[in-house]
Computed example of a mutant assay.
Amino acid sequence: MRWSATALLVFALVVGCSGGGESPAPTPTTPASAQAFPEPGTGTLDPAKAKALQNVVDMVIASPDAQTGSRGATAAVVTDRWTWAGAAGTDIRGTPLRPETAMAAGDITMTFVAAEVMLLAKAGKVDLDKPISTYVPHKLTANNATVRQHLSMTSGVPDFGGDDYRELDKAIAAAPGRHWTLEQTLSYHTARIGAPGSDSGYSNASYQLLGLLIEKVTGEPLAGRLRRDLATPAGLKHAAFQDGEKPQPPAVVDHNESCGEPDGYLPCRAFASAVAAAGGLAADAPTVARWGYQLYGARVLPADLVSEMTKGDGPNGLGTELFGNILDIGAAFGHGGNNPDHTSVMVVVPAKKVSVALMVADGSRNIGTMVQDLTKALQPLLN
């Protein structure tokens, strides 16, 4: 089992898009103030036009062992006029994938956690500029970094170290069906904490702490709160916040060495609950694409909150990765997800009112090249 931060995925998305990775990463552009999107389109893309998108998905499985390939892939597009979804290949057990097959969406979970924190701030229950220790007394909050700094990966609290992850692996392998609390996962963190406001790098630990904040402020389990405030209003019928919820069929069946036999969670209950606030989401590509459209289209959060989430001079907004103009169809943002068995990305281009999701049935793949191929095929369909 590998615990891979999405930082690797972002590098692939920003640099790997050039193929050889020699071009410098473009500076992310700060989006203009968010504008609400109309209702997601309900039309079906003409089959002749859809073939160009399906061809990209088919290409992914043509070289399953390559960094830009996979044994299986699903993709979806949501626009203000039409939607499309496609699939190719199989999961690791050889079961053919369908567009509605759920996979582990990994760090895309962070967009839900950040959106919930923004709602709590809007309601006056959380102050983004107060130390997170106001709400979550913990050894990792003792440096007085603010809630906003944890949202933007500038808290000074780094990710778990390599030895931390190895110890977590051992504990999960010893009892893969066990439920983990966020506090139990955080107890394994031993990496040195820096000053608040400093670049902490990509930090799953910050989002575990933000998950704790949500639970402590609301008095409710994280999964239930995200379901009520975000997933239900957004119309997400095939998303599961593990392990508070179990993935609904159809879903891939993993074969993870640390997890043993499948137990209905992705990849197993212990892993899914151990990373709940940073990477516990399981969903299919159409659901992920719809979530991107609803969230960044200011349909589940007010536009002023979306604007806050998508501003920043570096690679991160608040719970959002800023991709700049790397896809050639307009400034983009969203989030990637990397998990031992799956790699995914959600990209939203507000100027085009389009959300794209791509998920592959292998971990740590260069999904940046794949999504660039998909958006190239998509571009003429948006004009």
Rank of each mutant, 00 (worst) to 15 (best):
E215K: 03
P315Q: 11
L128S: 01
L182S: 12
P24D: 12
S23W: 09
V56M: 14
W82R: 08
S200Q: 02
D65Y: 09
V10Y: 11
M359T: 14
T369L: 12
A351L: 08
A195L: 00
E245C: 06
L301F: 04
A87E: 06
S133Q: 05
D58M: 04
A7H: 10
M118C: 09
A298D: 14
N366C: 07
T90V: 14
G89S: 08
A34L: 14
N55A: 12
A50C: 09
V371K: 03
T369Y: 09
G292I: 11
E116T: 06
H189A: 12
V57Y: 10
G317F: 00
Q379I: 10
A104S: 14
Q379S: 15
P137Q: 11
D304Y: 12
T185D: 04
G368W: 06
A303L: 10
T111L: 08
W3M: 02
L236C: 10
T74Y: 09
R93G: 14
A351Q: 06
G197K: 01
A85V: 06
Q184E: 15
E215Y: 03
K237I: 03
K216A: 03
S18A: 13
Q208M: 04
A331P: 13
L230F: 04
S344T: 13
D304Q: 12
G235V: 10
L186H: 02
R2M: 07
G260Y: 01
D304T: 14
G319L: 00
G336S: 15
G86W: 02
P64K: 05
H138F: 00
N339R: 13
V113R: 01
S4C: 11
M153D: 01
D80M: 12
Q184R: 12
I367N: 12
Q35A: 15
Q54G: 07
L168F: 10
L230Q: 04
F37I: 11
P158T: 01
I92N: 11
V354R: 14
S18N: 09
M370S: 11
R71P: 08
C17G: 13
R192T: 14
F37L: 13
A115Q: 12
V306D: 05
D91I: 00
G219S: 05
I172N: 09
